[in-house]
């Protein structure tokens, strides 16, 4: 009879989700996926500068991706499912880690440390909450059209123009994009650090890349409401 010399190990996935580094890895991975989506989203948005025909046919084309293998809009629904899963995993991991972080310092210092981390670093948690709320509003506004002043399916160009003619919509949108820029500024470099891609020689390059990404994405997204406000797009 063989001796039982092996001890049962939890699976790698369970270990991953059970550890602080693992949860951060999930946050980094989902963050990178969302970032890639945002780059594509921003480039798509900029097509608005080429007129309603170009923009609306681009929106219609998005529904045809994967045809004839996939049915109309199937690809879009697959992508939406994946992105919602990313947002949920990212948020749940952040919530659980934040609770743990707070519990790790039950008594605060009487003499508060002078804040040395950047503003972006300090606003990750609440900035993330703001972005989460923005995503809900944004989907209700421009995907379902529920909150949109016009909200006609198949006419995204006209919906966007109607949307950004309302001052508080511009305000919400631009504020959220600034929050997004800050989130990416710390998040991109932090993801590289978590995934083990950072090293002393790459540190500066990664920080610079994070700054460029944050600036380009924020500018790219903010350009659309500004163009509508100034009448460049109407």
């Amino acid at each position: 009879m063989a001796l039982a010399t092996r001890t049962a190990h939890p699976s790698a996935l369970r270990t991953l989700w059970g550890s602080t580094i693992g949860k951060k890895t999930v946050m980094a991975g989902t963050g990178v996926i969302m970032l890639l989506f945002l780059i594509a989203h921003m480039l798509g948005n900029l097509k608005i500068f080429f007129g309603p025909g170009d923009f609306n046919s681009y929106a219609a084309w998005l529904r045809t991706i994967g045809q004839p293998v996939l049915h109309h809009s199937w690809y879009l629904w697959l992508q939406r499912t994946a992105l919602v899963a990313c947002v949920v995993l990212h948020g749940v991991a952040a919530y659980q880690l934040s609770r743990r972080d707070r519990a790790a310092r039950p008594q605060r210092y009487a003499h508060r440390q002078p804040a040395r981390g950047s503003y972006a670093t300090r606003t990750m948690r609440w900035g993330g909450v703001i972005l989460g709320l923005f995503i809900v509003w944004h989907i209700l506004d421009l995907t379902t059209g529920t909150l949109n002043p016009r909200g006609e399916a198949g006419h995204p160009y006209e919906d966007i123009v109607a949307d950004f003619q309302v001052w508080y919509v511009d305000l919400i949108y631009i504020a959220a994009m600034l929050a997004l820029g800050l989130h990416i500024r710390h998040g991109f470099w932090s993801a590289a650090q978590t995934l083990g891609a950072n090293s002393r020689t790459r540190d500066r390059a990664l920080k610079a890349a994070a700054n460029v990404l944050a600036a380009v994405l924020t500018a790219g997204f903010v350009l659309v409401p500004v163009a509508v406000m100034t009448g460049l797009v109407n």
């Binding site: 580094i21 790790a104 040395r116 670093t121």
Partner: peptide
């Protein structure tokens, strides 16, 4: 070591660099 570190009740890293 990482499992032991988590078990001791230390927080996670948020890359603040402090």
């Amino acid at each position: 070591m990482v499992a032991a570190m988590d078990e001791q009740g230390f927080g996670g890293c948020t890359n603040t660099g402090e």
